[in-house]
Nucleic acid binder design. Structure first.
Length: 814
RNA sequence: GCCGAGGUGGCGGAAUGGUAGACGCGGCGGACUUAAAAUCCGCUUCCCGUGAGGGAGUGUGGGUUCGAGUCCCUCCCUCGGCACCA
């Protein structure tokens, strides 16, 4: 046997054999517990980089571990293949998006095969192929018929570089496009929306799923639930039909502190409520606001601006006339677009009142309040003052009392508002699933009948972005007949957001090739939900939120019977290289291919797992990878060199067996918790020990062989190729990957001798090796008898002695 | 400002309230070699000491405890998310 392991040949050999034998293909098997292990599918951007490996290799190791444990493991892979980069590549290189995408898919598929994963390729799905997007369209129709998809005109986010609208979730930071980073603007357009807001409350409920705190917080934050009251303020204007304006507040208990009333500049009543004398100023202000970008308008710490309209509302609780102002910090899209101004108890209102010299009236007494003019807003709780009949109540009780009164009198009601908006799914781009709708002059908006699906994306459209959908100019596509009346109709020319495709791909893996439905109910019942879903945290309020919503919607449509798609979620960290996240756009990607060729996929897999905790990510380093390759080589030699010991060496054999069981235990526990780095560290310790044993020939041959067998089994998920090769070379039957994960024996793993630590006043003073079975009295006596202990205890008296079994003795002196 | 994750050797990182620094990288010294590579062995938190040994030490300052990297409080810093959302 060669002294050096040549992964190139070995890995290729086994990959081919595994594929030929189809050992990783799975079918529903009711006799075994199922485990659905899913890794987020990649966008086929061209080539796999180390970042992809970091997402995929450790999850494959875990899936292999579950598989060896006897689970029927579904671990599929596919491609999120619709999207802008394909279209952009097509434009800049003159290749059709389909060709570009499928070329990348083919390339990445080959690269993926070199990783040595257990992906069941017979289940692969590619979202841009008609047999898949057929069902994306079909789901859209289901949502439409259920009233969950609707068309509306609204001011929407527009990315000038991508030349398309974006969902709110795709606008990040101070108004940047999540994809390309361009500054997003607003456009008034009629678009398709999905009613995710209907599920806002349910989406806040994470009970029953094991998701990272961080993602839960981000989604909760994004949904932005606020409890409060909507309350009516009276309008007494002869020439205004409305007799009230409603405002939302989370603090109805502060209503006696209202000294002004605010409308957003876009509020529909602004013009009617503007007094003639104020008109010029108001119009100028509204105009100025219109020119502000959203991100400017909502920036914190911005100086307050606003204009008095010259008219008033009436605070129904105390009958006071309150001046109406407009200001840009009141947003038209939140609540009712109107706010009651309570400067004493709201920081923003306080600033506003200061700037425009409006009264500030304290109605909730701050701590140590002396009755004077406040110097800052008090937004906490307290005793109600200046509030008529409510004086003396705590603000918490006042909240309820005032809500009761409002509801009694019909002046308002308790209500909840959300920050989340409905999901805008229209995109003015070519490379996406068509929205299966037809516009007919006679019948209006008509859905394409299910039996006419899929609406195919025409291959020959001119797809240069113009700000309008490219399909608009593809006449054979646009011109159709109305499904209802048979007259001339025009197809919807926008396509769907790609997140519509990734909303349900995990369902499709269960039913590959199903062509009469998106999935087979029995297969869904067997496999779903996903037991462990792993991927990047950047999808927190995009894919991960949308998928939860979609699953709940499908459940309500009666298509599935569960409401959460992913039982356990884990986010791996980010691989950085040369000071930044590895990404194609940054130009700091590390291609795995060369490393795989030189050192092997096993080494790359193991190194990525060893960098640190999977959730933290880490820095890619060549020397670290070399270290991992060294270790695999040591195992190669350890096994290859052979061993000739005596027939039986009871003491040493027992010690080796003890260590073996300890290692099995630690490796099993770590894999369960996805702690790959420490799992590998314990395997390394084990091999270090085996090296010493080999050198010293200290154990019997059978004991050695047993230890090696266990080592290979423990190594199999991490280094599937090396483990398989050595498994064969040590005379075991093919395949190691169909073996059971070793069980450990707690009794055998127990230490026989322990190091008893002796402390004096908590400081380490001595150590002694004693039998693990040592009793308390004996341990204390031994410890107190030590010279190095007595040196500290002779002078001072001993107050007490602490004994921790199998750990330490701590002597406390006065 | 709010929410979340962090802060431990030269570096990545280990440590059920009980020996801080496992494991690996790097470095230093040695073996093998004509030489190098590969491999193997030893050392490697800092300070004092030839040594035995002693002292300090997990962002800061307090607290709880026989004992704190770990639990509690204060503050500082880094990263991620949200933020004029009424």
């Amino acid at each position: 046997m060669a002294l050096r392991y040549i992964p190139r040949e070995v890995e290729k050999k086994w990959q081919e054999k595994w594929a030929a034998d189809r050992i990783y293909e799975v079918t529903e098997d009711k006799s075994r517990p199922k485990f659905y292990a899913l890794t987020m599918f990649p966008y086929p951007s061209g080539a796999l980089h180390i970042g992809h490996w970091y997402a995929m290799a450790p999850s494959d190791v875990h899936a292999r571990f579950k598989r060896m444990q006897g689970f029927n493991v579904l671990h599929p892979m596919g491609f999120d293949a619709f999207g802008l980069p394909a279209e952009n590549a097509a434009i800049s290189r003159g290749i059709h998006p389909y060709k570009w995408t499928m070329g990348n898919v083919e390339n990445m598929r080959q690269q993926l095969r070199s990783m040595g994963t257990i992906y069941d390729w017979s289940r692969e799905m590619v979202s841009c192929l008609p047999d898949y997007y057929h069902w994306t369209e079909w789901f859209f129709l289901k949502l439409y018929h259920a009233g969950l998809a609707y068309r509306a005109k609204a001011p929407v986010n527009w990315c000038p570089r991508c030349q398309t609208v974006l969902a709110n979730e795709q606008v990040i930071g101070e108004g940047y496009c999540e994809r390309c980073g361009a500054q997003v603007t607003k456009k008034e357009l009629e678009q398709w929306f999905l009613r995710i807001t209907k599920y806002a409350d349910e989406l806040l409920d994470f009970s029953g799923i094991v998701w990272p705190e961080r993602i839960q917080a981000m989604q909760t934050n994004w949904i932005g639930r606020s409890e409060g009251a909507e309350l009516s303020f009276g309008l007494e204007h002869e020439d205004v039909a409305e007799k009230e304006i409603r405002a939302f507040t989370t603090r109805p208990d502060t209503i006696f502190g209202v000294t002004f009333f605010l409308l957003s500049p876009e509020h529909p009543l602004v013009s009617q409520l503007t007094a003639p004398a104020q008109r010029a100023e108001v119009e100028e202000y509204v105009d100025w606001c219109r020119r502000q970008a959203d991100y400017e308008r909502t920036a914190v710490g911005r100086e307050k601006t606003g204009v008095f309209l010259g008219s008033y509302v009436v605070n129904r609780l105390n009958g006071e006339k309150v001046p109406i102002w407009i200001t840009d910090y009141v947003l038209p899209s939140y609540g009712t677009g109107a706010v009651m101004g309570v400067p004493a108890h709201d920081e923003r209102d306080f600033e506003f009142a200061r700037k425009f010299n409006i009264d500030i009236r304290t109605v909730i007494a701050p701590p140590d309040w002396s009755g004077g003019e406040p110097t800052e807003a008090w937004s906490g709780q307290g005793m109600m003052v200046n509030s008529g009949e409510f004086n003396g109540l705590s603000s918490e009780r006042g909240y309820e009392a005032i809500c009761d009164l409002l509801e009694d009198k019909g002046w308002g009601k308790r209500t909840v508002t959300y920050r989340i908006r409905d999901w805008l799914i229209s995109r003015q781009r070519y490379w996406g699933a068509p929205i299966p709708m037809v516009y007919c002059d006679r019948c209006g908006v008509v859905p394409v009948p299910e039996e006419d699906l899929p609406v195919l994306l025409p291959p020959d459209a001119e797809f240069k972005p113009t700000g309008e959908s490219p399909l608009k100019y593809c006449e054979p596509f646009v011109n159709t007949t109305c499904p209802k009346c048979g007259g001339p109709g025009r197809r919807e020319t926008d396509t769907m957001d790609t997140f519509m495709c990734s909303n349900w791909y995990f369902l499709r893996y269960t039913s590959p090739g199903e062509d009469s439905a998106p999935f087979d109910d029995h297969k869904i019942a067997y496999w779903m939900p996903v037991d462990l879903y792993t991927g990047g945290a950047e999808h927190a309020v995009l894919h991960l939120l949308y998928s939860r919503f979609f699953t709940k919607a499908l459940r309500d449509l009666g298509l599935i019977d569960f409401g959460e798609p992913f039982t356990r979620l884990f986010n791996q960290g980010i691989i950085v290289y040369r000071g930044g996240k590895m990404s194609k756009s940054k130009g700091n990607v590390v291609a795995p291919d060369e490393y795989v060729r030189e050192l092997g996929a096993d080494a790359v897999r193991a190194y990525l797992m060893f960098i640190g905790p999977w959730g933290l990510g880490g820095e890619w380093s060549d020397s670290g990878l070399v270290g991992m390759s060294r270790w695999l080589n040591r195992i190669w030699r350890l096994v290859g060199v052979g061993y000739a010991g005596k027939a039986s060496v009871p003491e040493a054999d027992r010690e080796l067996r003890r260590l073996t069981h300890k290692t099995i235990r630690k490796a099993s526990e770590d894999l369960e918790k996805l702690r790959f780095n420490t799992m590998l560290a314990c395997l390394m310790e084990f091999t270090n020990y085996l090296s010493k044993v080999q050198e010293a020939r200290s154990v019997s041959t059978p004991a050695w062989e047993a230890a090696i067998t266990y080592l290979l089994l423990l190594l199999a998920p991490t280094a599937p190729h090396l483990a398989e090769e050595l498994w064969a070379r040590t005379g075991h039957p093919y395949s190691i990957h169909n073996q059971s994960w070793p069980e450990y024996d707690t009794e055998l793993a127990k230490d026989k001798e322990i190091t008893l630590v002796v402390q004096v006043n908590g400081k380490l003073r001595d150590k002694l090796v004693v039998p693990a079975s040592i009793g308390e009295a004996e341990a204390k006596e031994l410890a107190l008898g030590r010279q190095r202990v007595q040196a500290y205890t002779n002078v001072k008296g001993i107050t007490k002695v602490i004994y921790v079994p199998e750990r330490l003795v701590n002597v406390v002196t006065s």
